[in-house]
Design a protein around this nucleic acid. Structure first.
Length: 470
RNA sequence: CGGGAAGUGGCGCAGCUUGGUAGCGCACCUGGUUUGGGACCAGGGGGCCGCGGGUUCGAAUCCCGCCUUCCCGACCA
């Protein structure tokens, strides 16, 4: 039977749909101060899974975690001209503390290049100290004009990596390694969001960087979302903070530094890349709960026993499983489960159980399969991998079908209304970029013809991706 | 920060034009019947009407300021 919409349909109002999902899947609430965000347990559980997966990959790439302070002397920001200019408009500054006006205002970190640069300078003496590979998990503050839960909040959670190297080549190679082996691998293989890897045009570069790389994902409304970013900082910060080392030849030289980050914005990307009109859809490898087991009828001893044993069997196979404790009718509980996007639901009912089977229901397709109780674990674990692959395939298919090659700026503007436009980069002058801005469009990234990442925006034969973005 | 819309129990709304201190649906609590796709009956609880000021005998309602939210721009992970 047709039921009333639980959330606003995507086709009716995509932003409203997004807010409905965030609220009804109990992911986050607005904080009391404009732009701040309360991350609720379910939203935080998803973030914790992201942290675990990203952190593992960062460590595999050789970086170590550390922690630097939330408060940064304002003078630090000023040391790198482009950096301070880029961040000034969004800084939160402390001018009074301990009941007294401060002699030097303190900035709440918008990012930590400056403090970390100061300490890198202190810790690095010799080429033997290089590369220095650091990462921190932290909150940062960037005052936002137009906040949106997860996508753009004034305070958000992220990891920021900061490294120092002896040569430009080494720095560049490491930033690229992080970009592909950490970010792209995580986004593709765990979040199941295919990305376009590329470099940002100079106009979109991080303040103080010589090169900025991005992972651009496509949301279901055809808009782009930068899901992670990596920067080559050249010697800009090394010069500003005197990060110098002595080479094996005994000469001193400035380091080359990099920085790279991924944030709670990825949660927003997850929602908009896979969610549907029933709510959230979480890929199995990311899901805090991969399988939810529910009794179709309460108070039936045989059903309860079967549920318990299925949960136990899945746990023993390292499946992240929960037993549904929802209240109310069957339909209500199913609706709530679907809102949360658990990849697989096991419905245990007395009638099926009498036949020795239970019902496995995929969240992504809604497909139901009756499975003998004895086969639940093997079927479920296989299905989880299928769902993971299918979500990536569907997202890739959607992205590719909504990405069109165009030959002119006019065609690009038209195509970018519903997706991505690929245009020859040499057609895009600064004037054209302005024109695109007037159409609410930006150049999301530059790629080589084969889709790989260029070394530099001046390479011949590059294409660019033009789209609306979050 | 510019342009638009809006803030009334947890959520969604009506009431405001034509001032007389609040109502509906869902949710919640109790009891009962239910339970294979948002159950039903009965009985309950809950609102400084965003905040502050002003006009008035009297303000959810009229006026001013601020805060917050949403949409569209400029800015951004």
């Amino acid at each position: 039977m047709a039921t009333a919409n639980v959330v606003t349909p995507q086709s009716e109002d995509f932003p409203k749909w997004y807010q409905d999902v965030v609220a009804k899947a109990e992911m986050a609430d607005n904080g009391p101060v404009r732009g701040t965000m309360v991350i609720r347990p379910y939203g935080y559980a998803i973030w914790e899974r992201m942290v675990a997966e990203v952190d593992r990959r960062i460590k595999r790439a050789g970086a170590q975690n550390a922690y630097f302070p939330l408060f940064i002397p304002q003078s630090y920001l000023a040391k790198e001209a482009e950096h301070v200019e880029g961040f000034s408009p969004e800084l939160a500054v402390v001018t009074v503390a301990g009941g007294e006006e401060l002699a030097e205002p303190i900035v709440v970190r918008p990012t930590s290049e400056t403090v970390i640069g100061e300490y890198m300078a202190k810790w690095i003496q010799s080429h033997r100290d290089l590369p220095l590979l650091l990462n921190q998990w932290a909150n940062v503050v960037r005052w936002e004009m137009r906040p949106r839960l997860f996508l753009r909040s004034s305070e958000f959670l992220w990891q920021e990596g900061h490294t120092a190297h002896a040569s430009a080549e080494d720095a560049s190679a490491y930033a690229r390694r992080i970009h592909t082996e950490v970010y792209n691998d995580f986004l593709t293989n765990v979040v199941a969001v295919p990305t376009f890897l590329g470099i940002k045009p100079p106009s979109e570069r991080f303040a103080g960087a010589t090169n900025t790389m991005t992972c651009e994902g496509m949301m279901k409304d055809g808009k782009a979302l930068q899901m992670a970013t990596s920067h080559e900082l050249g010697q800009n910060f090394a010069k500003a903070f005197d990060i110098v080392f002595q080479s094996d030849a005994g000469e001193s030289a400035h380091c080359y530094t990099t920085s790279w980050g991924s944030s709670t914005r990825m949660v927003g990307g997850l929602i908009m890349a896979h969610g549907d009109d029933r709510g959230l859809v979480v890929p199995p490898r990311l899901a805090p709960t991969q399988v939810i087991v529910m009794a179709v009828r309460d108070g039936d001893d045989a059903v309860d026993a079967a549920c318990a044993s299925i949960v136990e069997g899945l746990l023993a196979s390292d499946v992240r499983v929960s037993l549904d404790r929802g209240r109310g009718s069957f339909g209500r509980r199913v609706t709530d489960i679907e809102l949360k996007g658990y990849p697989l639901r096991v419905e245990v009912g007395p009638r099926d159980l009498a036949e020795g089977v239970v019902n496995l229901v995929r969240r992504d397709t809604g497909e139901k399969t009756l499975v003998p109780v004895a086969d639940v674990v093997t079927t479920a674990t296989a299905l989880l991998e299928t769902i993971q692959a299918d979500l990536l395939a569907a997202a890739t298919q959607r992205r590719d079908s909504q990405t069109v090659e165009v030959a002119t700026v006019e065609e690009a503007i038209a195509a970018a209304q519903t997706g991505f436009a690929r245009l020859a980069w040499d057609l895009v002058t600064p004037e054209i970029e302005k024109q695109l801005k007037g159409e609410a469009l930006t150049v999301r990234c530059l790629q080589r013809a084969d889709g790989s990442m260029p070394d530099h925006e001046k390479e011949a034969g590059l294409t660019c991706i033009i789209a609306k973005s979050y």
